[in-house]
């Protein structure tokens, strides 16, 4: 490839332990954007109208761009000779650390919009804080992607309102999407051991401070959309520690097919 990524950080200042934690966290962020970006890319050519087909492809592209930067940074943190491609294409499902929400199937357009909306708020507030991280690698990627995430949250918020406060049919269906997906929202803010440690070290935000910001935005949009948030839902989790729903395996089978069948193949 003609393009080389500029090494951004002085990693030698980090202890091996901190480096391992950062690697774990960076992979988790990368996996999350990759899986959601891949899901959105499945819409390409199938969107309900051309503009929204383009919108979903654009958001997918932003997420996959973010993914590449994160995997490149992870490869640098790991420095075992693995590349961004190895990390994306040659890891098993149990090694993936994305939350369960993003691997859920596309369903109908409403399901996709709801999944995106729940994620976008989280992504937006996380990146907003993470761009101030003292770790220049994460901060640089977050600052770049935060600008893009601002467009994503606007898109999905507007669609939630349009579908919720729309026709009888659109309201019925988006309310159902909300009921089906809400159980995956809690995991976004439940912190893993690694996240707790990095947060205590001041390198990443405390997710407990992100949650109220997210709730305020989500609550405002749902109210405007005349949707009812399900109460007393048991929150599913596991993805962030490698325990996934069955959907991830199928997704990875497609995503990784080419590299598994033709190792080292490049465009």
């Amino acid at each position: 490839m003609d393009l080389q990524h500029t090494p951004t950080v002085h990693l030698q200042n980090y202890s091996p332990e901190l480096r391992a934690q950062l690697l774990d966290y960076t992979l988790q962020l990368a996996d999350t954007s990759l899986i959601l970006g891949h899901r959105l890319s499945e819409w390409c050519g199938h969107g309900p109208i051309l503009e929204q087909d383009l919108a979903m492809a654009n958001i997918a592209l932003d997420l996959i761009g973010e993914t590449r930067s994160l995997y490149q940074y992870a490869a640098e943190l790991e420095s075992q000779g693995r590349t961004e491609d190895d990390l994306a294409y040659l890891r098993e499902a149990v090694e993936y650390k994305n939350p369960l929400l993003v691997e859920q199937p596309n369903g109908d357009f409403g399901d996709t919009v709801m999944r995106q909306f729940i994620f976008d708020g989280f992504h937006f507030f996380l990146l907003k804080d993470l761009q101030n991280s003292p770790d220049s690698g994460l901060a640089g990627i977050a600052a770049k992607s935060f600008k893009e995430a601002s467009y994503h949250i606007k898109w999905s918020s507007e669609w939630i309102i349009r579908l919720g406060d729309g026709t009888e049919e659109s309201k019925r269906r988006i309310q159902k999407s909300l009921e089906n997906l809400w159980m995956y929202s809690g995991e976004l803010f439940s912190m893993t051991h690694t996240e707790e440690q990095l947060s205590q070290a001041g390198l990443i935000p405390d997710y407990r401070t992100l949650q109220p910001q997210w709730e305020a935005h989500v609550g405002k949009v749902f109210a405007e959309a005349t949707l009812e948030v399900p109460q007393n839902v048991f929150m599913q989790k596991g993805g962030k520690t490698g325990r996934h729903t069955e959907h991830l395996g199928y997704l990875l089978t497609e995503l990784q097919y080419l590299q598994r069948a033709y190792p080292g193949l490049e465009w």
């Binding site: 003609d2 393009l3 080389q4 990524h5 500029t6 951004t8 930067s69 220049s136 901060a139 640089g140 990627i141 600052a143 770049k144 600008k147």
Partner: peptide
Amino acid sequence: VVNLQLSPAW
């Protein structure tokens, strides 16, 4: 050699 630099963001 062409390098890609993310930060500061465009």
